[in-house]
Design a protein around this nucleic acid. Structure first.
Lengths: 173, 173
DNA sequence: ATCTTCCATAAGACTTGTCTACTAGCTTCG
DNA sequence: CGAAGCTAGTAGACAAGTCTTATGGAAGAT
């Protein structure tokens, strides 16, 4: 389960509560993975059960109790094992391509609308990624460089998608 | 649920059994969606229950009974409604980027290996997509053109990914 | 003559992920 | 003063997807 590995990865950077993790998922991690609160807490519970993570309850002075989670040596081993394990090819899943594939029954205007709306969404995503990159300081160490590199992947892909969309739009009208 | 829509889309092209659908998922549809047998049969049952699809059992002369599924007018309406509905932005989910993001603790050789293995997989996928395109006759109608267009999206994306990988590999070594 | 593969469906357990709502105190803004 | 929003975690239902096993005949291979 990948979510568990990602959580281990985040806890390897710093000890965190479930809430902290959720924030990371919604910001830093957002461009390649997302997670629901409930899912995060459940996964954390399982990681603790499996001994890959420990919990410490910190009584909150001005906030509710925090459950601070810390990765264990076994957790670090599991993380390392994941990073060096064989790649498991994940199947493609693209709801937009599915629609487009079956869009033969739409008329020209409807099809053009579908493409235009997707283009707008893609452009928006490109802007968002570029904004993140613009606000990221130049990478100091290996870790920071890897973070930028994953961002660049999103940028490259999104730009490629925009090129493809323009081509398609020209071709189909 | 997108699987149900895709099944409706396929049944709109021709009446089919669950088995036929599975074959389509493993071939035609494969580059943008995949589905498990059990999942397909369950979804079909629900579509029938909802009146979007009808079943007719054909006693198999030389094979087991086939349940031929046919889309109903209500099914066609539902399909059309999907095609013209608002786009729901699907969250990114990329197991490889997740690994790369956390690969800071790997040494240079391990990181290079990770990238090389992913590159090989991407190249393989590119070859597979190109093989499909090469074996596809030039598009005659709108539907056929849309099919090619979705294929092209995969090609464009995969090529962009390969470019990105080369850049990353150069940068990190 | 047996072994594998294809055709075709079904049942069941299990894992992942999503959605909604609840508790409860603190801060901030109007 | 009250409403909204943040911090923090919990609970339960539900939806979607995966994996495994079972059945059983027909065609083709070795």
């Amino acid at each position: 389960m990948i979510l568990a590995r990602i959580i281990l990865g985040l806890l390897d950077l710093a000890p965190m509560s479930g809430y902290d993790l959720k924030r990371h998922f919604d910001t830093t991690i957002n461009h390649f993975w997302s997670a629901d609160r409930a899912q995060i807490y459940r996964t954390l519970a399982r990681l603790v059960e499996d001994g890959l993570v420990t919990v410490e309850t910190l009584a909150g002075a001005k906030a509710p109790d925090r459950h601070e989670h810390r990765i264990t040596p076994e957790g670090r081993d599991a993380l390392r094992e994941w990073l060096t394990s064989e790649l498991d090819r994940q199947p493609e899943r693209d709801a937009f391509l599915a629609r487009l594939f079956f869009a033969g029954s739409l008329d020209d205007a409807e099809l053009a609308g579908l493409l235009a709306r997707y283009r707008a969404a893609a452009q928006e995503q490109l802007d968002a990624l570029e904004a993140i990159r613009a606000s990221t300081p130049p990478p100091a160490d290996r870790r920071a460089r890897l973070r930028i590199v994953t961002l660049n992947c999103g940028l490259t892909r999104t730009r490629a998608e925009l090129d493809w969309l323009d081509e398609v739009t020209k071709e189909l009208t």
